[in-house]
Design a protein around this nucleic acid. Structure first.
Lengths: 223, 223
DNA sequence: GTCTATAGACTGATAGAC
DNA sequence: GTCTATCAGTCTATAGAC
């Protein structure tokens, strides 16, 4: 037993139980029983139940954000500081989707924990998500570099819709599978990413061209 | 005071407090204090806290579903049993968005309650949402009538993406407003509806034409 | 650092009098 | 139907042994 084996035992047990039964149905006593440690250890190592949840969530989402930025950086380097819009969007939604869906990932505790976090949105997690805006601004900037002629408002809506499709696909994957009678293949993560990227590119008004020219692309066709 | 004034007092107080502070931070004691009734009255009238939340949610969402189907029926009648795809999608996302967003609606208890329900997704509400599939099948059928040539899988993805954009816009309206520095006008509900409908139509592969012809419309453009 | 033991506040739920 | 009183369960927090 090394110095902080108790700490990691708590983290692993908590992630497993939250992934399995959700946040509302798992008590600290369940977690310490699963981890084989004492109740007081949670308070000693994390301070409170909320901080334990927060620690689990931040470590996972920092990893995803790092992956996103690495993909973005690689795409922009390859293009001499300016990546095609589909590459930017792929860097935005790819890591999240690959982290949560897919034939194997679906069963990993980490993936199911992040899905729970997305669906149930408990208080400590909501607070962390609100600090995510700075991270998204980097992608808005990359999209602006990719589509210089496009008004800012279109950039933001496009970014928002891309995230919307990605997150809701993670949240409601079960419903989509049932609604479509299995016709929508949720194990084909790459196909799903390309689908979302393609729709987002269309929403931004074109086929990943460098200059947009027109100022009112896809939306606003009035009724 | 009629027979069930206590019951409605509880419902109103609960909706108001949940709208204001969320589900996690409102106790039954807060609700009965606000309603001016006794603690035991909640259990007498509703059975449990979860059933009280469920009753609030079902009554609101049944109203939205009714509105959706009315709009759909009107559009299909006008078109002789077959509505243009944008009208079908407008009937799907319009009532939800108008019910939750907009300059005045934002402040109504009912609207804010439904936004909370969408974000926090507490257990009793999740269970109800899972029974919503039959309702969505009606819209999938209407979309199929509208776009007869399109493969089912495209119908389902299009329906899913339309709902994704609508729901995530409701859930994350605050973040979008901050990210865009107010450039995305979330008070312009009609503009937002048209935007989502337009993108969804593009995702389905065209400009609301009657026959799709091609079988692989928007998505799947490989990397 | 980890544990036992326990305190104190709060929660949802219920039995039983009226 | 409405109330009081009370239950068992939860969480945070801490004192003190090892």
């Amino acid at each position: 037993m090394s110095t902080d084996s108790t700490r990691t035992a708590i983290l692993n047990a908590a992630e497993r139980l939250y992934a399995e039964r959700g946040f509302g149905d798992v008590t600290l006593r369940d977690i310490v029983a699963e981890a084989g440690v004492n109740l007081a250890a949670v308070n000693y190592h994390f301070g409170s139940k909320d901080e334990l949840i927060a620690e689990l969530f931040v470590s996972r989402s920092l990893a995803t954000n790092r992956e996103r930025l690495n993909e973005l950086k690689a795409a922009e380097s390859a293009g001499g500081g300016r990546a095609p819009i589909d590459a930017v969007l792929r860097a935005l939604v790819g890591p999240t989707l690959r982290g949560c869906l897919g034939p194997d990932k679906q069963r990993s505790d980490a993936a199911r924990f992040m899905i729970r976090a997305s669906i149930e949105a408990v208080a400590p997690i909501r607070k962390i998500k609100n600090r995510e805006i700075d991270h998204l601004r980097r992608f808005a900037a990359a999209m602006r570099r990719s589509l210089p002629g496009l008004p800012d408002v279109e950039i933001y809506w496009g970014l928002h819709f891309a995230l919307a499709m990605a997150h809701q696909t993670i949240r409601d994957s079960e419903r989509l599978e049932r609604l479509s009678d299995g016709k929508c293949d949720l194990d084909d993560v790459d196909g799903m990413i390309e689908r979302i990227v393609a729709v987002s590119v269309l929403a931004l008004g074109g086929n990943a061209a460098t200059d947009a020219g027109d100022t009112k692309p896809a939306a606003r066709r009035g009724r």
